[in-house]
Design a protein around this nucleic acid. Sequence first.
DNA 1: GTCTATATCCAGATAGAC
DNA 2: GTCTATCTGGATATAGAC
Lengths: 195, 195
Amino acid sequence: MSTKDKILGEALTLFSENGYDGTGVEQIAEKVGIKAPSLYKHFKGKEDILNALIDNAEARYEEYFGSEQHIGKIPESSEEFIDVTMERVLFTMRDPMIRKIRKFLVQEQFRNDRLAAITTRHQLEGVQKMYTRIIESMTEKGLFIKDDPALLANELTAQVVLLIAKADRQPQLEKEITDSIERHIRHFCDVYMRA
Amino acid sequence: MSTKDKILGEALTLFSENGYDGTGVEQIAEKVGIKAPSLYKHFKGKEDILNALIDNAEARYEEYFGSEQHIGKIPESSEEFIDVTMERVLFTMRDPMIRKIRKFLVQEQFRNDRLAAITTRHQLEGVQKMYTRIIESMTEKGLFIKDDPALLANELTAQVVLLIAKADRQPQLEKEITDSIERHIRHFCDVYMRA
DNA sequence: GTCTATATCCAGATAGAC
DNA sequence: GTCTATCTGGATATAGAC
């Protein structure tokens, strides 16, 4: 891995923990294993690192949600739906990189319009569109009752997003949070899926 | 209003816009109309101001959600339920003080455990408990179908919380966001209330 | 309780040798 | 590309007069 990428990685870690303003270039350099002035051979300055991270967050979003691949195989029963959804939730919740991006964005969302827009995309639009597609397909197969798939997708994902955010700030509550998420998903299926 | 309170007010405004680390004591002083060193006659230092704001946020929570008063009159029809809920949503979304506290907390939630806990209380527990009570009462009166009131309260409030957070970071989208909220609430009533 | 002057510190950034 | 040495500005905070 290039030094440039190492810098970005450590910067993201630190920004997600202490925020952009709470992180010094010297801290970043130390984690990378170089001295602060050496950073400036790779980036114009601290803000340049920030912008590169924002670019990465956008690219990552495009990469994941840009293709149809992330939707995966459409579940054929409510149990399968619950299983794949829980799996996705747990992965998203625990994956270190995704978690860092989430914590970074939530703290820096007010810094400028671009960060605000990316936060909305990462937090809401991505999953919502994904589940709109999935529920749409499953409705066509008669697994869901007839309703607006986009509305249902929002009902499903809003709670999950909120509870994952809670787990980010209170990781000691992870167990009860994952239980809540599962209860919510099961309830969602009880209400909107055909028996 | 005492200078001390003015300081807290301006500090909250600035922290909510630029974060704690992004705000200087000099900026706070300037908004108050004094010089920075004068601040130190009222507070030990910048962190002391932060702690006073956290105390205020806790007190505010207790004051509002501590009594039963905030629940208000229990609605007697779905239209009334939608009306009072929308009114509450719009108030919460637009009230400058509540908005500042929300933006402040969301940015500083990772600073320490106390801030994390307060953020969860403000963002989730308060409204959820409130709507659990309301839905409970309305279920007893036969207005809601038989279901777990706490689960329903979460279904109702999660989306609202998430969309208000979106409006905080993208205020230019307020109109479409309030429309989404109303659609969500109406859908919620369609699904869970008796005709 | 407010001011001016100032101490102290530290962060981001640059110069230039290797 | 990395280092040491250094500049510069900005930020918190204190001292002491009024």
